[in-house]
């Protein structure tokens, strides 16, 4: 074994790999860890919940264990009108996102405000909580922080859900699960690039826009438009509904798959959806035997299609 270069070679190997890991893992992790969460990051993680992919609370990616985003225009506790506010409702047992579990990753300032004024340390997964994103001054700068509305305003999750009603509830967190499960991100990136790309797809994200979010699902292989700001470009829920059901209804040349199977068994009115009939009629329409395409069923409130549309419509 005392032959040639093995002794020095194995030391060199350890040194080479070690310094490579040092530069590519340790140095950047220090830099990235010092990034301060932006308002976008707080909104994103609060609406998405803990993990957007496989997790123990949602092993088959059905969208379980995720928060509900609600738009409130009256105080859920007192019922008196308030300035419209977006609140993130975590019913009992829904896991909190990383920013609440480890406030350190929110970055200096945001962490202090969230823990101090926001009282996020008082929130417990076992009793549920309602969060809002607020802003306050910190060292002369205005910063956004997470406010535990259950502690500061006495809002209970069930009250907040009831006050908003289904019309003002959005299943954004569950929708992100659909986005990951259905592989939307194989074609649609969530990352307008830092070059001219943004003129079409909107502003590229900033450094602190992702703190607390996992997976970020930037995507790498863009075969379709970037979606990070899609709802700012197209805010029509009707268009989205038709486009998900059969993209070629609204965009003749689209190569996107049909996601009609996300509608499930029944439509919004509770009627059974007859897919075979719909497809037969659609084929007739394509063949020129019908003047109008068949009507797209409205997705039921509980359907996966509704959750996915909620998510996409929240990408502003």
């Amino acid at each position: 074994m005392a032959f040639r270069e093995y002794k020095i070679g194995s030391r060199m190997f350890a040194f080479a790999l070690g310094s490579s890991m040092m530069i590519t893992l340790y140095f950047p992790s220090k830099d990235i860890a010092s990034v301060q969460a932006t308002e976008t990051a707080l909104n994103r993680q609060l609406s998405f919940g803990r993990i957007g992919g496989f997790s123990v609370e949602d092993p088959f990616l059905k969208g379980q264990g995720k928060p509900v985003t609600v738009y409130l225009n009256k105080d859920p506790k007192t019922g008196s009108p308030i300035e419209p506010v977006t609140a993130y409702v975590y019913p009992v047992g829904v896991p909190f996102p990383s920013g609440l579990r480890h406030p350190r990753i929110l970055g200096a300032g945001v962490k202090d405000l969230s823990l101090g004024q926001g009282r996020i340390a008082d929130a417990k997964e076992s009793s549920g909580a309602v969060f809002v994103v607020s802003a306050a001054g910190f060292n002369g700068k205005t910063l956004s922080y997470i406010e535990n509305a259950t502690a500061t305003r006495g809002w209970q999750p069930s009250e907040a859900l009831a006050a908003a009603g289904d019309a003002n509830s959005r299943y954004i967190g569950s929708g992100k699960i659909m986005f990951v499960r259905e592989g939307c991100w194989w074609c649609h990136t969530l990352l307008p690039e830092e070059t001219q790309d943004w003129q079409y797809f909107g502003a590229p994200p900033m450094l602190g826009d992702f703190n607390g979010e996992s997976p970020t699902a930037f995507g790498s292989d863009r075969k379709a438009p970037d979606l990070l700001h899609v709802a700012s470009r197209n805010s029509s829920r009707e268009w989205m509904t038709m486009h998900f059901y059969n993209p070629r209804l609204v965009q003749t040349h689209s190569i996107m798959p049909r996601y009609d199977y996300l509608w499930g068994e029944k439509d919004a009115a509770g009627n059974k959806i007859d897919y075979d009939k719909w497809r037969a009629e659609y084929n007739e329409y394509i063949a020129g035997k019908r003047v109008y395409a068949p009507e797209v069923p409205q997705p039921a409130a509980e359907s996966e299609a509704r959750k996915l549309i909620d998510f996409v419509m929240a990408l502003k």
Partner: peptide, 17 residues
């Protein structure tokens, strides 16, 4: 990122790492 639920840019970077 999966074992310890790392998030944000750390997650994005480690994915590509």
């Amino acid at each position: 990122p999966e074992f310890f639920n790392l998030t944000g840019l750390t997650e994005a970077y480690l994915t590509w790492w």
